[in-house]
Amino acid sequence: MTTTQTPLLNIKNLSVEFGSVGNPFRAVEGLDLTVQQGEIVGIVGESGSGKSVTMMAMMGLLEGQGRIVADDLTFDGKNLLTISGRDRRKIVGKDIAMIFQDPMTSLNPSYTVGYQIMEVLKVHQGLRGAALQARALELMELVEIPAAKTRLHAYPHQLSGGMSQRVMIAVALACNPKLLIADEPTTALDVTIQAQIMDLLVNLQKERNMALIMITHDLAVISEVAHRVAVMYAGQVVEIGKVPNLFRHPTHPYTEALLASIPEHSKGARRLSTLPGIVPGQYDRPKGCLLSPRCLYATEHCHQERPGMTQHDTGAVRCFYPLVDKEAV
């Protein structure tokens, strides 16, 4: 992380709070994340660790729900913390686009697929008439939807999950975004379709050299496609590092447990079998290190204080006692 290039996305010390001011729940806490142009960053972590909330906060989709604080939240030279709603809407959906976990409910049931693709083209690029039609068709073909021309007139309920996700990708790519956020894009799909969608996303990323944040439970896939991976736990990034280093030599006990819980190249588990207990929720967050109740290496120190991020050669880790790579010694 010694690169001097200014990152496309720079998040410094981001916190997101829900609930009342007197009794807040920190869904995201002290989160740092950078994404370079054309980079694929994976984010992994158990359910409820704050992956989606982080991305929604950045996109401005938490409006009126979460309170967002950060030292820096910059995308493409624009400060997303102070930006007006109007200016944000010129970026969101155009330069940053997002696709979601459940494609079947993410499309509006009352409008045709074509309408929902053309809508972004109209709003952000002012396309009209034949040019608009042609571009929509082009996008449908880009995401490899068969019989694209007739499908433009289809309603979402007439499409399968995989097809719906392809449409969502077409909508997201419509204005050639610099950053695409894919929030568990394959979790809701059949296993056979999952690989297809993942391949499509990675190919499109390469073709257009756009940055991609891939949120997933599937560690096997992320180890193959991502350049860097951030591991989240209870609202914090506990480890971030380059691939394959992070997978070969995890330095955080949680990353280690996460890796140990997947049988070689199979689907990641939503719950960890190798660590007892579950992610602490709103009311049972420990005083010390958030992992301390479950950590196999926890000491008294861990129960009393929260560790900060420590930088090392290929990344950073949030632990008082980072695991030493025994082979490297």
Binding site: R89, K90, T105, S106, N108, E119, V123, M168
Partner: peptide
């Protein structure tokens, strides 16, 4: 609904989100 979140993620105006979606 998820599709209203999608509409907002598309950068549509609040009026469009409400009246169209």
């Amino acid at each position: 609904e998820d599709y209203v979140r999608t509409a907002r993620a598309k950068g549509l105006s609040p009026a469009r989100v409400i009246f169209v979606h």
